[in-house]
Nucleic acid binder design. Sequence first.
DNA 1: TGCTAATCTTGTCAATGTCAAGATGACCCA
DNA 2: TGGGTCATCTTGACATTGACAAGATTAGCA
Lengths: 202, 202
Amino acid sequence: MTQTPPQTQTDTYHHGDLRRALIDQAGKTLEQYGAGAITFRGLARALGVSHAAPGHHFSDRNELLSELAADGYAGLGDALAAAMEGQPPNTWLERTGEAYVRFALANPERYRMMFASRLMAGVCPDRLRAESSQAYLLLLKAAYQKEPEADPATYRLQTPELAAWSLVHGSVMLWLDGQLGPELDEATFLRLTREMLSRAFA
Amino acid sequence: MTQTPPQTQTDTYHHGDLRRALIDQAGKTLEQYGAGAITFRGLARALGVSHAAPGHHFSDRNELLSELAADGYAGLGDALAAAMEGQPPNTWLERTGEAYVRFALANPERYRMMFASRLMAGVCPDRLRAESSQAYLLLLKAAYQKEPEADPATYRLQTPELAAWSLVHGSVMLWLDGQLGPELDEATFLRLTREMLSRAFA
DNA sequence: TGCTAATCTTGTCAATGTCAAGATGACCCA
DNA sequence: TGGGTCATCTTGACATTGACAAGATTAGCA
């Protein structure tokens, strides 16, 4: 797409790439004020466009949130892939586990949204499904220390990868929700998670 | 509380126990249509009272949701206690783990709300804090196969109970969010969870 | 019986998502 | 170069919601 060059946003009737700008602005709002603070009208105000403009790029508020979630899965996938890149396979599980937790702690609201959006959007949008499957494949790769042979749609879930995923996802969610108490600092939490993973797969 | 006897709800100016009725109705709406469908005005319509009546019993929508969450923790606590009642301590972890998962699967939206409400309500209401601490104590009891000695506020989280809690919470959340794929049925999921717990604490 | 406080109603307001109809201008083709 | 077409955006409107204020109703108690 040949777009207009970067410019101040309000000096033209056409915005340039409003869809992208909406997603970016929503991302900022997400981490700063939480998902509940994301509104079509608020985003429109922040970008200097009319209140109904967002509705032309997302059929629904949920569609915008799904896009944020899909971006989250993409970022998580990148982090997981980077953690394994060029490293010996027998360290993949440990490395991806840590990368997973670090991603969640660095993007708490985003992470929460990734796991809240499936049911919010009654039917899961294609891109969200694709990005999350991609990230899931990387988890399988780390758990089995090789490229998964079957495609994720037909893959049958087994105990080991469910345990690994449950451990990191569960501990992260408990942490994000404040269930582990305010006195547990981030460094200690990371250490505990490492210990859990290494003990469970010793 | 001496209340008026059961009666049709709209035949008196005073409802009798509107607060209780609101919580009950919200609970039904919760499991049937999800948390997003709970509105003050909707509940008021369902109970035949004016649209502002709920506002006199809950300062806030979040206060009502917190009450639902607190009820959830109370129910979970009962289920966990019942699972250990009269059983040998070396089976507590396994029994409470299964009871925990069964509770979550039987009350999916309630369970989700229990873990979503802490951050929603900026400051955690007293009753919610109390009920969740109570349930947490039972988890500690099961993990250590004896009554916890310290009070939960000063208790220092250790790897074993974090692992146990993370395993069940994580797998349950993944299941509830549909992340484990539509072809994984409930019975298989329960079996996998049992396997995970027994392997992790063999 | 009458007072007081809890409980509920009516009326209102601002904010939001969503839709419809019209304005604007980017792009393409003759 | 000029005109048409269609995506993009604006304006206007509507129903729904949470929240608040002021007044009506009634329970409970002195």
